[in-house]
Amino acid sequence: MVEIKDLVKRYGDTLALDHLDLTVEEGEIFGLLGPNGSGKTTTIGCMLALLKYDRGDIRLFGREMSPTAYDLKRQIGVVFQDVAVFDRLSVQENIDYFCGLYVPDKEKRRQLVEEAIEATGLAEYRKKVPKKLSGGLLRRLNIACGIAHKPRLIILDEPTVAVDPQSRNRILEDIRALNKSGSTIIYTSHYMEEVEQICTRIAIIDHGQQVACGTSQELKEMIRTGETVTVEGVALTKEQQQHIRTMPHVYDLSYENEELKIKYENGTGHLLSLLHYLEGEEVRFANVFSEQPTLNDVFLEITGKELRD
């Protein structure tokens, strides 16, 4: 459905997109994950023919995207990072206006507007102007304006920024529902939990390059870290630390302020082995917990920095 090949975009001397390649299949919720400034929004801008780019090829629905590709535009809905609604039109008027840019038929539009209002839970706020809405409701209005015309492809650019947890969950549910109703979703975010929660496939981008792409599981399998065990409030001798370091699958160990952190390569049951050893050594500890690798670990291992940097 979306094919981006060798996309290069510069802002003056800054290389924003560095030979970026992306492919999105129909029916996916495709996540574009990367830190702020990694090139996610620029990719979206180029994809929508809003931004000029220096090199590359962008094809949507098998055709080249351009500012005058009106029949392609008709099949796309966009939810921008910044709330893009008119401040002096009510909720209903805003949705009707933006839907009207895609759907000229008045009766059909009326039905679509109602559906969008219901889907985003804005029914009781339909007469209110945007400044009377909370941040979460405003984001929902932003989504309603982008999806009311029932597009085949929906692009959501960080739609949950500055949203309270309750509204965030509601928005994520809405996105899943849109996908179930047949829309392909491209979802950009720097919140790895969200991406992991809803996306069927994820591309990690950094400095305008795609550094990894696959399902959440595939991405995690790409890295060395399989499990991380943390033991808090533990007192260990140097010999004990050295012994743990030689246990099977351990590839990294840190011990600081009575906190032990051990990283294991693939495999399971590492926590039990460790607990057996500590029991045998009569070592006491306060807390112990095990973590499976996250997308942040994937990003960290591939790029050498935290996703939240």
């Binding site: 809003l50 008709r74 921008f80 990072q81 709330v83 893009a84 008119f86």
Partner: peptide, 16 residues
């Protein structure tokens, strides 16, 4: 579209 998000939304629509 390079000034306001509203204009960007209008620009990506099929409106001439």
């Amino acid at each position: 579209a390079n000034v306001s998000a509203c204009a960007a939304r209008r620009s990506i629509s099929p409106e001439y």
